[in-house]
Design a protein around this nucleic acid. Structure first.
Length: 269
DNA sequence: AAATCGGGCAACCGCGCGCAG
DNA sequence: CCTGCGCGCGGTTGCCCGATT
């Protein structure tokens, strides 16, 4: 059984907000504060979903939001943070006063990623495009297997586009120490260090454990970079379900074909 | 002037997490 | 421990509007 919808979509208004609706929501939050969004539409006299009210308030009506263009300093900060933690827009937005995650996400998707690419930097890996293409060609020639991939420099893989996680599908519990040794250098580490030293802060992620993990350049939610190559090391890596194993196997094949496709079309770059 | 295209952005959707009962 | 609910998040969609043909 799926989760029931938060509101009746047939009776709820959708689409752009009118100035009158904004005024009602502002008036309500000014006197009652934000929170308990499910009851806000009723109390504020709005025919909107509570979720829609929350979104409108956090992305547009909230006090101290900046509505002007991004500065070059903000650009630099976004790029550096994206290189370090990937597309965790809420974390990035917290580092930019007056900006929302939606702002940052839209700005990245429409402007910054293109700007980076035009300047010869791959917006996914944050490495020179030529290096990325070289790596893909290397992968095409390599037998796609966890052990063989250890020969590929660890810095090749992006946190948000890690290499195929084959060990997980085949129940390989962990990578060997030699595999780890081959990837001692973590380019994200020095990015993180430079960021942290610049403002002396850490990335709050909602729990102490998570914060500690992020401090070491790891992503507690996505599980990327258990070692520097994006291959999970340690822990239970196999699924107990044949169904899940089949899906993982299928995913593995797709990733392999994808890399092969990129290699076949490397002349397009 | 009209039609089409494409960029930018606001809003929506679905999922995961945390918490209270 | 389980379940339901509220909230926050990232990804995606769709509308608006200026540029181009």
């Amino acid at each position: 059984m799926g989760r029931p919808p938060c509101c009746d979509k047939s009776t709820v208004k959708r689409g752009l907000w009118t100035p009158e609706e904004d005024a009602k929501l502002l008036a309500y939050t000014a006197t009652h504060g934000s929170g308990n969004w499910t009851s806000v539409p009723k109390k504020a006299g709005l025919k909107r979903c509570g979720k829609s009210c929350r979104l409108r308030w956090t992305n547009y009506l909230r006090p101290n939001l900046k509505h002007d263009g991004f500065t070059p300093e903000e650009d630099e900060k976004i790029i550096a943070l994206h290189a370090t933690i990937g597309s965790r827009w809420s974390v990035i937005a917290k580092k930019l006063p007056g900006r929302t995650d939606n702002d940052v996400k839209n700005y990245w998707n429409t402007k910054l990623s293109k700007k980076l690419y035009q300047s010869g930097i791959d917006p996914i890996t944050h490495r020179p495009v030529s290096h990325v293409m070289e790596t893909i060609r290397g992968l095409q020639n390599a037998d796609v297997h966890c052990g063989n991939l250890s020969s590929v420099p660890a810095s090749t893989f992006s946190p948000i586009f890690p290499q195929p996680q084959l060990g997980r599908a085949h129940g390989e519990a962990s990578c060997s120490s030699t595999e780890k040794a081959a990837s001692e250098f973590k380019w994200t580490d020095f990015l993180m260090e430079s960021l942290l030293s610049s403002d002396g802060d850490t990335f709050a992620t909602g729990s102490d454990n998570n914060a500690a993990v992020v401090d070491h350049g790891l992503d507690p939610s996505a599980g990327f970079m258990c070692d520097a190559m994006g291959v999970p090391c340690g822990g239970d890596s196999s699924s107990s379900s044949p169904f899940v194993d089949a899906i993982l196997e299928q995913e593995r094949e797709l990733v392999s074909k994808f890399y092969q496709f990129l290699g076949d079309h490397s002349d397009l770059s």
